[in-house]
Amino acid sequence: MDSAFLSIDHVSVRHSNSTAESLCDVSFDVAAGEVIGVLGSSGSGKTTLLRAISGLQSVSTGNVVLDGVDITKTPTHLRGIGLMFQEHALFPHLDVADNVSFGLRMAKMPKPDRSERVAEVLELVGLAGFGSRDIASLSGGERQRVALARTIAPSPLLLLLDEPMGSLDRVLRDRLVSELGNLINRLGLTVVYVTHDRSEAFELADRIAVLDSGQLVQLDTPEILDAQPATAHVAQLLGHR
């Protein structure tokens, strides 16, 4: 693909304390509007990859290029990337609307536009009218939607999702995954989606990257991946015997 929107170029991450996961010379490109699923067992470097893209983790070597700009040295808050955390990390001292509008405030959007955008995004995730609710009063599924709303509200160039369904039960998860898929399609978002769940990845992703011990072992469409797993580990991860 020659029109790479996001380009991960020989990125390595080494941690000072050796126990944490790291990345080893990972390279791949993502096209605009593409959804990349990142699969891997725990400790494979999935989360580190997201943190490296978002700037929460500085890379040891290599470059991250977004929309033609090398953002390797850009501070996190200036990258214009959205990240949805595994545990949502909703601000406990703010209500739903203030959580969602946080990024808009940081971008200095005028107040009337802000409330309009918050209402629009809450509507989008199916939480219309939840604005004044306290975070503590929300159910698990509602929190997940607030987190999603907060992440997409500032219209990030790139959306990173770190096991967004991790803490939800199966039934809810299935429903939310399909809703999320619809949303991503409607908004035409470029997404890197980390999960350890094969079905999620297969349902949402255009292509799937498989990480093992910090290395990128395969990057292909779900169909090819399913048909021709590159290694035994990939096959095992996909549930093949």
Partner: peptide, 21 residues
Amino acid sequence: MVGALPLMDAAFESRGGTHRS
């Protein structure tokens, strides 16, 4: 196409320093 509304484009500027913190 709401997706890539370049809300934060202007904010892109390179500020060096891996020892930011």
